[in-house]
Design a protein around this nucleic acid. Structure first.
Lengths: 201, 201
DNA sequence: ATTGCCATACCAACCAGTCGGAATTTCCGC
DNA sequence: GCGGAAATTCCGACTGGTTGGTATGGCAAT
């Protein structure tokens, strides 16, 4: 049959809604995007949307949930490899950047629309981000014990110095440009690792 | 007299409105802040606000205008000193960070609410930011010619690597914490300069 | 016939911006 | 320095339009 099965259809609509809403949120911002726009762009009606999502807020939170889960998953996998501190940091750094480029839209929404979430969900997002931070800090600390990372700068600054690049990506990187994501990931990682080196005497 | 002079009064209300609106925008976001909230917090009414500002948009743009002008001014002053490329970059870097910390609220609004501005004003903001970028890039290029900065990484990445830290500041830095702004400025600048160093052989 | 899926019509809430006018200050001729 | 007209500053009720969310009902499948 030409028509998709029921299971495909019911799965297709929520997916379509999420894809479309991310794009619109990234382009226009969460507040500037009306539910009507979303459902129009997705080719359905409000009835369908409110059947699958309890609120517009849910649509936004799902973006966060997806990204947070994905990054956490990747981090755990890389740490589990048991490489050296430098190797681990390099792998994490490159992976996060490439992943962020793959989902540039998500990233843009992520960093701009936190305060649009309900108090409760903001807390949730913060908690999971802190978890990620802590895991990252642990790798840094290991490198410092091993003497391969500088210890003269507070960890909080070292961490911020890394995440700032990831945040900023959506502000300047354009997939159509001259730089491939692998290049960007490798080069930013290089810069970061260079700044982590202990002072040479 | 106990009552302030006329000149003070007429200047006081727009100033108060701007101060209050920055705080509210930073806390709740531009879209989530109603004009009513702003005027209530400022202790005036809508009539007063719409007497001094043509729209809510104006209130937001003024924040951008102020910050953009200030930063540009500082940059020009530092470049005019005619120091070495390294010295200039260091001074610019430290100054931008300290200035950003002084106006953390402004920064938070700045980086989150660009898309709330009218198309025209977004263009204007972009233009002025690009001007700043170009001036910054010129300093980098000079350092590369002098051989004190690495040349194996595209300037656009070098620039992004710097601005990302400034952007991210409002996300993690808290003025009440253990770190002074001078410390933070000096240490982030250190990290940046370390990553700029040519590969040692 | 009952249940999940979705369209259409509708609503109550809210919000940026307006408007007529009141209060106050500034200006100016004398 | 004074009287009053003109201009400025500010008030607050009101409006047109939009929005997130709901209620009702039809349709298809089990």
């Amino acid at each position: 049959m030409a028509t998709p099965s029921t299971a495909d259809r019911t799965a297709a609509i929520p997916t379509k809604l999420m894809r479309v809403s991310v794009e619109l949120f990234a382009e226009q911002g969460y507040a500037q995007t009306s539910v009507q726009q979303i459902v129009d762009a997705a080719g359905v009606t409000k009835g369908a949307m409110y059947h699958y999502f309890r609120s517009k807020d849910d649509l936004l939170f799902d973006i966060y949930d997806r990204l947070l889960s994905l990054q956490r998953e990747h981090l755990d996998e890389i740490v589990a490899r048991g490489e050296s501190a430098i190797g681990t940091i390099r792998a994490v750094c490159e992976d996060v950047i490439e992943t962020s480029i793959d989902g540039l839209h998500d990233g843009a929404v992520f960093f701009r629309s936190q305060h649009m979430l309900s108090e409760k969900r903001q807390k949730e997002v913060k908690r999971r981000r802190r978890e990620y931070n802590d895991a990252f800090e642990a790798i840094l600390a290991r490198g410092q014990r091993d003497g391969v990372f500088r210890s003269d700068i507070p960890p909080v600054i070292l961490i911020a110095h890394f995440f700032s690049d990831v945040h900023y990506l959506a502000q300047w990187y354009s997939p159509g440009g001259a730089l491939t994501k692998h290049q960007v990931a490798a080069e930013i990682t290089d810069l970061y690792l260079a700044s982590l080196q202990p002072a040479h005497n």
